[in-house]
Design a protein around this nucleic acid. Sequence first.
DNA 1: TTGTACGCGTTATCAT
DNA 2: ATGATAACGCGTACAA
Lengths: 340, 340
Amino acid sequence: MAVTIKDVAKETNLAISTISKYMNGGNVRPQNRKVIEEAVRRLGYHPNDIARGLRSTKTRNVGILISDFDRYSVEVLSGVEKELRAKGYFAIICSHRDSSEKAKNALKFLMAKRIDGIIVDGKLTSEEYIRPVLDQRIPVVGMETVKDKLRMDYVMTDSVAGSYQAVEDLVKNGHTRIGIITGPKGYFTAEERIRGYRRVYEDYQIEVDERYIIGGDYSFQSGYDGMIKLWELENRPTAVFISNYTMCVGAVSAIHHLKIQIPEELSLTTFDDMEFSVAVKPHLSSFRQPQQDMGAKAAELLIRRMNGEYDDFPKRIRLKGTYIPRDSVKRIASDYQLGE
Amino acid sequence: MAVTIKDVAKETNLAISTISKYMNGGNVRPQNRKVIEEAVRRLGYHPNDIARGLRSTKTRNVGILISDFDRYSVEVLSGVEKELRAKGYFAIICSHRDSSEKAKNALKFLMAKRIDGIIVDGKLTSEEYIRPVLDQRIPVVGMETVKDKLRMDYVMTDSVAGSYQAVEDLVKNGHTRIGIITGPKGYFTAEERIRGYRRVYEDYQIEVDERYIIGGDYSFQSGYDGMIKLWELENRPTAVFISNYTMCVGAVSAIHHLKIQIPEELSLTTFDDMEFSVAVKPHLSSFRQPQQDMGAKAAELLIRRMNGEYDDFPKRIRLKGTYIPRDSVKRIASDYQLGE
DNA sequence: TTGTACGCGTTATCAT
DNA sequence: ATGATAACGCGTACAA
């Protein structure tokens, strides 16, 4: 069996409570300090966090619920874990893979494990599963989602602004027939990105052609298929905005398949700036989400809640991203002035 | 405070032990069963895993130590987490970001948390940090690494075979001047991939030109720089093998910058088949590692050890990957027969 | 089948 | 400053 505080007590002929006090930075007689230090080292004693947790009802573990391990979430996780670790917390990461059943299950077990808090990375997770967590007064921070009925904190990218900037870049370069491949219905981020698209049309008083709005589901295949659909349209668009990374990779694949010249025949801009954007030719204009920052912010906020700071509760943090224009958008003569 | 087994006992007028037995699937009088179920639901009782862990000295948590959250590890994590969850275990994931200090620290705290086992994803982690874990009889499974002095299990991809297949494809297509961009010195996988490269040269009795071996560090930048170095060589290679994904993306970026035509001017093949390979033009011939399978295997093996199955200990599992030829390799007249 | 009592490793309280 | 002891929530002998 592992060595416990008792063993140290015996070894030093001191009381358990004295050892405990020493371990927690309390004052002990200098001579005892030396003896204890010696014994701890010789025995290789490490306090048992489980027992500690039982007493304190704090585990310093936080649950992270994501939908999947993918190119996006890995960035978020990186930010989350870094911030958490720096503050002495550990991350128990679970994926639900878009299964309500698994999400429910994960939350249930995380509760049983007495995690101190939870970060939920949006998407599908039904709110009925979150409520019990909140009821137990366990802080929850949501990312890229909002459940209005739940009294909790949120961190998100300003997706509306992001897609607005991307689409506006297109419009400013003379494009009015702009295709968009969207995320799945009901996704918070997907809705926001569509909203940014529509808002540009509003602000520039251009009429939206609904045929240019192609429903995707954030997958490679839907990006691929979406691009083909757009290209086969009667009055095909002169530019396309892709609303996430994975679909962008799929779309670019389709573009190569169709032998479309970017930007000569079609301008392209996309959400999620990744190394991919500068690996293809031409380099893709894209909107960069501050994913790691978001993760870090979520962790930071959660830590404050776990420490009982509820002065500004609930809070919604919106982080700004950066639109990076590169070489995939071509300036064209606007048929906005010519057309109709 | 949270509701405990005591509360259920009081509510039902039964003894704590009866409730406990019921919770653990024991036999109780049918009428009591109903009463208990009712009370559990009304009170919202969930057994406290912390208390359980204290008694059983089992937490059903396993520590995962990775070097970084990146395109590679995310696949592994996906496999690990899926397998773990299916068996009722949870993953506490830590990254050490190539800092020995952080790795040591993580291991120390994971021990204190009394994780039941650990999976270490290779690379730099010094073995002196692992030994104490083994000493506590906590099972450890290593991935993509081997520390010969440590008595533990390993799971890895057959990297030698992988790079062999890739480079052999080049040779079979007439190439003899083949560049390679390697991983960092001292990395197990990097060494293996170089070995595969050299072995092809041995088997086909071609002499290795050491100038074609460019030292990289698995980063985007080193892939970019490496490609430029190769291209600027006096007697530049006719083909290049890139030994990991991230460097491949960097190399492709350099290729575009240099306006090199693939495969007309240069043939290309790479380790790590990702969606990237089919998103660029031409599609890249590449070796696919079974990353998720590796993660799953590691988890599976660890679970067996945690259950005390030590009949075939220690074990080294080598998983085969698949080489996928596509359009980035051109058949050329071999200067092997012409040259010198 | 049900209940009693103890122990798991720690921390906190209260004397000393 | 140090020591004895209760309590954290649960499981498990053992007794009833």
